[in-house]
Protein backbone atom coordinates (compact mmCIF):
# COMPACT_ATOMS: atom_id res chain seq x y z
CA UNK A 1 0.00 0.00 0.00
CA UNK A 2 1.43 3.45 -0.81
CA UNK A 3 1.57 6.21 1.83
CA UNK A 4 -1.10 8.21 -0.05
CA UNK A 5 -3.53 5.29 -0.12
CA UNK A 6 -2.85 4.63 3.56
CA UNK A 7 -3.68 8.22 4.61
CA UNK A 8 -6.78 8.18 2.37
CA UNK A 9 -7.99 5.00 4.02
CA UNK A 10 -7.31 6.60 7.43
CA UNK A 11 -9.51 9.59 6.70
CA UNK A 12 -12.27 7.52 5.09
CA UNK A 13 -12.48 4.71 7.59
CA UNK A 14 -11.97 6.72 10.79
CA UNK A 15 -10.93 3.43 12.23
CA UNK A 16 -9.31 3.45 15.64
CA UNK A 17 -6.55 1.08 14.67
CA UNK A 18 -5.73 3.08 11.57
CA UNK A 19 -5.61 6.21 13.76
CA UNK A 20 -3.13 4.56 16.11
CA UNK A 21 -1.02 3.41 13.19
CA UNK A 22 -1.27 6.87 11.64
CA UNK A 23 -0.13 8.56 14.83
CA UNK A 24 2.75 6.10 15.16
CA UNK A 25 3.74 6.81 11.53
CA UNK A 26 3.70 10.57 12.22
CA UNK A 27 5.81 10.17 15.35
CA UNK A 28 8.29 8.02 13.43
CA UNK A 29 8.38 10.59 10.62
CA UNK A 30 9.01 13.50 12.99
CA UNK A 31 11.68 11.53 14.92
CA UNK A 32 13.54 10.59 11.74
CA UNK A 33 13.32 14.19 10.48
CA UNK A 34 14.81 15.44 13.77
CA UNK A 35 17.60 12.89 13.74
CA UNK A 36 18.37 13.79 10.11
CA UNK A 37 18.58 17.47 11.02
CA UNK A 38 20.71 16.74 14.08
CA UNK A 39 22.97 14.48 12.08
CA UNK A 40 23.12 17.15 9.37
CA UNK A 41 24.17 19.78 11.93
CA UNK A 42 26.80 17.47 13.41
CA UNK A 43 28.06 16.51 9.98
CA UNK A 44 28.41 20.11 8.75
CA UNK A 45 30.05 21.62 11.87
CA UNK A 46 33.31 23.15 10.74
CA UNK A 47 35.13 26.41 11.23
CA UNK A 48 34.25 28.96 8.56
CA UNK A 49 36.15 32.22 8.44
CA UNK A 50 33.80 35.07 7.59
CA UNK A 51 34.70 37.47 4.78
CA UNK A 52 34.67 41.16 5.59
CA UNK A 53 32.12 43.65 4.35
CA UNK A 54 33.91 46.79 3.17
CA UNK A 55 31.14 49.22 4.12
CA UNK A 56 29.90 49.62 7.70
CA UNK A 57 26.10 49.39 7.86
CA UNK A 58 25.86 52.08 10.55
CA UNK A 59 27.48 55.53 10.70
CA UNK A 60 31.19 56.31 10.95
CA UNK A 61 32.75 58.95 13.21
CA UNK A 62 36.32 60.25 13.51
CA UNK A 63 38.67 58.72 16.07
CA UNK A 64 38.46 60.67 19.36
CA UNK A 65 40.96 60.93 22.19
CA UNK A 66 41.91 57.34 22.97
CA UNK A 67 43.72 58.25 26.19
CA UNK A 68 40.42 58.66 28.01
CA UNK A 69 39.51 55.55 30.00
CA UNK A 70 36.48 53.70 28.62
CA UNK A 71 33.14 53.81 30.44
CA UNK A 72 32.48 50.15 29.52
CA UNK A 73 33.11 47.29 31.91
CA UNK A 74 36.14 45.12 31.13
Amino acid sequence: MTRRKFIHKLIKAGSHSYCVLGIAYCVYGIASLFSRNTHHARRTTKFVRALRLKKYPGSLRPLRDIHKQSKWSG
Binding site: Y56, G58, L60, P62, L63
Partner: peptide, 11 residues
Amino acid sequence: ANPEDSQAVFC
Protein backbone atom coordinates in the same frame (compact mmCIF):
# COMPACT_ATOMS: atom_id res chain seq x y z
CA ALA B 1 23.19 46.84 19.56
CA ASN B 2 22.47 46.39 15.87
CA PRO B 3 25.45 47.49 13.75
CA GLU B 4 23.15 49.47 11.43
CA ASP B 5 22.00 51.55 14.44
CA SER B 6 25.48 52.14 15.84
CA GLN B 7 28.48 54.40 15.35
CA ALA B 8 31.99 53.13 14.76
CA VAL B 9 35.41 54.31 13.66
CA PHE B 10 37.37 52.87 10.75
CA CYS B 11 40.50 51.24 12.17
